[in-house]
Design a protein around this nucleic acid. Structure first.
Lengths: 260, 260
DNA sequence: CGTGCGGTTGATGTAAATCAACCCATGTGG
DNA sequence: CCACATGGGTTGATTTACATCAACCGCACG
């Protein structure tokens, strides 16, 4: 799959009306932390791009590879992960609709991690040249993208605290809180209940635990009324219960955070 | 201490000859991953700044605070850390001489973590205005600083893998490997042996373990001939032994990594 | 010459891993 | 339409890596 992403047609057609609606989610994501004037927003929305639909589990980029395009996640979920020598896997970032998936390849030669879809997903593949032109022409957009990078790094630091210092229950609750907040940020209207389309094994890889222990911890959270489950479906129920269990604070998400 | 950093004199004197030598370490750090022409290097070296000496343990910035200057670490060590509700502490980054300590405050309103010296240290405090002017005038410098931010994020991801998926022995060995590589990168000539001026308690907070367990794990590493200790002094002995124990790969450090 | 911080050591406790079944829904091919 | 394979998920028994608790040590330093 990652092979498919590489050969982008360089002289891509400019965005059509339908395309413009597509990138709205990305603009909303950036507005969550940065102010953008309407012409900046329009410029973003009319970025030329290629729409690509992926299956769950498809690779977008592999460690050691070089990427020459910039994928934006329009729908579905994706994640970054790294592998240890013994085969252990650690998911190091979860990306939700509206997120830019690989801004760093613009500046670093090779990828230091794998990038894979979690669910079926739609990507907008933007040619690097178009993105570079946009960034050059519009400082506010450049700044918003940089803030996006900084916030992802901040989330990574919070994950370090989460995995390094919290027990399984708080760790899981913290992740679910974060997911809720982030989903709300890009949603047009706050979704009543959030569906978490992730297997217990993936949760384990995300939180540095085992699938078996995730299973038992989920049962505890369900018993506390924090979440609901039916079959393989996991939904977030009472966010305040999760909040209390995780002792959650969201300052690290830097909502509406741009300085100056 | 962090109070002291804030009131920077805006009309700071331009750098003198002595100052220029001071910032050399920062330039060397950036050259570790980015190409910079000699005029870019000179511009960096002649950044106006204020020299500040700090004691071990002094705070440079606290979570929730806002910073209005950019500190560069000239000598000594510093680290970023976060606190959990139960008092647990996680060190989320270790900074060595040559590192910029707080580029993100240029773009985010408040700090999401604490920044503290590990040892006595010397900082160059650069006024934001001067840094902004430099970045505006010299795209190559701007790019190098961005690459620096991206590499720090990459290191954070590797730490997630380290803490989430490796056992105590490999975890400790991995950290010592990383420190060695990073120290070599900014050194004028590769130091024969690296001295790690960090307490066992700090190592514990860095690796998500307890001081007691760090102590026992250090003994194991010493037994394997990987490190040497005398009194409270810890030095890295055979890097290849550490390498093997940690199954270390340094691609995540992106050495000489700038693309394009 | 105490005092305190960092380090060391042993005994004990425990959260989470591991091992090993088994269940169930879904999909698939005969 | 049923046989069966497959990928989660669930559950209990057992093990283990690391945490916790509690001393004690020894150097540095005021």
């Amino acid at each position: 799959m990652s092979r498919d992403l590489s050969p982008i047609v360089p002289d891509m057609a400019p965005a059509t009306i339908a395309d413009i609606e597509r990138l709205d989610i990305v603009v909303r994501k950036l507005l969550g932390h940065s102010r953008l004037e309407s012409d900046d927003r329009d410029a973003l929305r009319s970025l030329p791009h290629d729409l690509r639909r992926l299956e769950a589990g498809d690779y977008i980029l592999r460690e050691g590879e070089r990427s020459d395009c910039c994928p934006l996640l329009l729908s579905g979920f994706a994640y970054r992960h790294k592998l240890a020598a013994d085969g252990g896997r650690q998911i190091v970032a979860l990306k939700i609709p509206g997120d830019a998936l690989d801004l760093q390849s613009l500046f670093l030669r090779v990828a230091d991690h794998n990038l894979q879809t979690l669910t079926p997903a739609e990507l907008a593949i933007v040619p690097i040249a178009a993105l570079e032109a946009l960034v050059k022409a519009r400082p506010a957009v450049a700044r918003a993208l940089l803030v996006d990078i900084l916030i992802e790094a901040s989330i990574g630091r919070e994950w370090l605290l989460n995995i390094g210092r919290r027990n399984a229950l708080a760790r899981l609750a913290h992740f679910l809180c974060e997911l809720t907040y982030r989903m709300h940020q890009t949603a047009l209207e706050p979704p009543a209940r959030i569906d978490v389309p992730i297997t217990q094994e993936q949760l384990a890889d995300l939180l540095g635990l085992t699938p078996v222990h995730i299973n038992r911890t989920l049962k505890t959270l369900e018993g506390a009324g924090a979440i609901e489950r039916s079959g393989r479906r996991l939904t977030i129920g009472q966010i305040d219960v999760l909040h209390r269990i995780a002792d959650y604070s969201d300052i690290y998400l830097h909502r509406g955070a741009q300085s100056a």
